[in-house]
Design a protein around this nucleic acid. Sequence first.
DNA 1: ATTCGTTATACTTATACTAGTATAACGAAT
DNA 2: ATTCGTTATACTAGTATAAGTATAACGAAT
Lengths: 113, 113
Amino acid sequence: MYQLKYKIWIEKNGKVFGIGPLMLLKGVSETGSLSEAARKMDMSYNKAHNLIKSIEKKLGYELISSKSGGSKGGSSELTEKAEELMMTYENFYNECEENLRKIYQKHFKNSNI
Amino acid sequence: MYQLKYKIWIEKNGKVFGIGPLMLLKGVSETGSLSEAARKMDMSYNKAHNLIKSIEKKLGYELISSKSGGSKGGSSELTEKAEELMMTYENFYNECEENLRKIYQKHFKNSNI
DNA sequence: ATTCGTTATACTTATACTAGTATAACGAAT
DNA sequence: ATTCGTTATACTAGTATAAGTATAACGAAT
């Protein structure tokens, strides 16, 4: 049988936010560390860092405020704007998922094409 | 402001059908020629041909029946199954588009994040 | 001053995908 | 038999993206 697949993201000066960045930011929120957030989702630190920086550039504001050094090496936390964006996108994305699944069922459920 | 972007496709032994193949098959239907259909959408013939062949392989049935030679060089036309698949996917895709647009509006309309 | 894990950045290498080139078979029309 | 535009297939080159490597700065804690 078939399998539904999709990608949904928003653009602003190019691709700017999607489910990947959302997950990464969630990890930062939970761990307080960009490095650990990246590790948790099996992403290299440099990739995570470049991702965040490129998004911040396109958005025109910062998503995380980081400090390096200190006993724990450093830390990162989300900005208020990041939290707003995450919430908006997550609600949007969840609703999209739900609807796409329904529509897919409707059209492909009993199809043996 | 943001811009919504998405890709929706179905898989079966890997990516198998999406808006691109649909457009190409529509072109074949209209022109009676895979070559002309490809040209119309600025796609090279070999790419179009490989695309159709790889999809047919994954699906396990043929999408176009082609003959080469003859005064017009050759021709291609859609199989019945191709037309069924196209119709199913197109209806599905249109409904997805409509819904995604609405959901996007709902969440991002008055957002200045 | 040394240690530590993080942040930060630059640079190189792989990989996947896209696009392009080349060549042959086909067969009705002339 | 030659022509023509198509179908058909193989092979090469390019390009964009991802992944990997390397190195430095940071600064509280010891």
